[in-house]
Design a protein around this nucleic acid. Sequence first.
DNA 1: CGATTAACGAAACTGGGGTCCCGTTATGAG
DNA 2: CTCATAACGGGACCCCAGTTTCGTTAATCG
Lengths: 208, 208
Amino acid sequence: MSSESAEPGTVRPGGRTARVRAAVLQAAGDTLAERGFAHLDLADIARRAEVGKTTVYRRWGTVTSLVADLLMDMAEQSLPRTETGSLLGDLKANARLVQRTLADPRQGALFKAVIAAATCEAKTAEALHHFYDIRVNEWAPCVQQAIDRGEVPEGTDAHEVIRAVSAPLYYRLLTSGDRLDEAAADRAAEAAAAAARAGAYLLSKGLV
Amino acid sequence: MSSESAEPGTVRPGGRTARVRAAVLQAAGDTLAERGFAHLDLADIARRAEVGKTTVYRRWGTVTSLVADLLMDMAEQSLPRTETGSLLGDLKANARLVQRTLADPRQGALFKAVIAAATCEAKTAEALHHFYDIRVNEWAPCVQQAIDRGEVPEGTDAHEVIRAVSAPLYYRLLTSGDRLDEAAADRAAEAAAAAARAGAYLLSKGLV
DNA sequence: CGATTAACGAAACTGGGGTCCCGTTATGAG
DNA sequence: CTCATAACGGGACCCCAGTTTCGTTAATCG
């Protein structure tokens, strides 16, 4: 009875609809990775995905909206974290994972493009934030374990420590031309661990 | 005698040419700040700058190319650093400066847009890297002074310490919706200082 | 299984971003 | 001051991204 029906793809999400979505997201990821976010149009993506142009425009409408959906999809594919028994070991494992991802030509370019897209629209930005919230939540427990072991002071902001590991790697990816190597990953982990031990991430300091 | 003459604006860079460049860069900055990088076309910028559309296309050609020129312009306007006498004080001053810049609605949006643009073309990326090289070089000496004072170990990578201050702020700007407040700036400075004191940024560790 | 209709897709259409042409302005050299 | 021409700018033009229309296919329900 509602004057306007819900978003297309919500009533019959199975079969063809799901296939179309998968093909389009695949094509979008490929195109973003090799062409970047700038000169990117939905018509091109439709051709690549071998899907009707009309369909892409109807279901996503804009490039940023499509990227937002791509991020929802990426958020669901979370990798389980590894546990090493020490804070530094865990943070290094995390840093290496991020470094490998960003250093990979396709993945690195994709992440750059996705961040660029999030810059342009609130909805896409929200999807990106959600993506990183999930990733950070996945790894935060290792800091709590370090607190329990007495490696870092009580009241340390676990999420902030995890973010501190990724930050230098992303900063380097975006603002310098230097390659992301293992040394950069290890340095990021060591710096975060040292700062955490020194109490730089106590909750009382930055009461969000 | 060369078959193709040099870029327009290089032979007679004075008077009108300079005025046009200034007007276009101003308009580009404004548009980037309020509309973002995505749906941005040179025709619109030409209208804003009250300059012939043809001129903009002839001199810059693409949006990313224009952003690259804008970055060259921004790189020249470097703010002098302040000196406080201690590493933590200097790093906090730097962190506060970055934080104020990124938290400012216009400047923050502009930086986001510029980073997004650098994602899309090598030439723009190079201009962005150059911009940050200059900024980092401006502040690196304060770390060297800390080394001389014995605050941080010999062989500490001064540039890496300065980057470590900015990294969490940019990471937060781009991947989270949280506001950048003074607490975040101070935390970034404290973490970098603590990690530097602990020897996390020794050159031997990450021999670039 | 059918019947209903959500969702897809081919084709025609449109508007504005980007290009080209050529006349006008004013810079910089002599 | 004068001149050659670098650089600008108006306007016509074109291409293709994005929209609309309507017929076709197939997902879901009974």
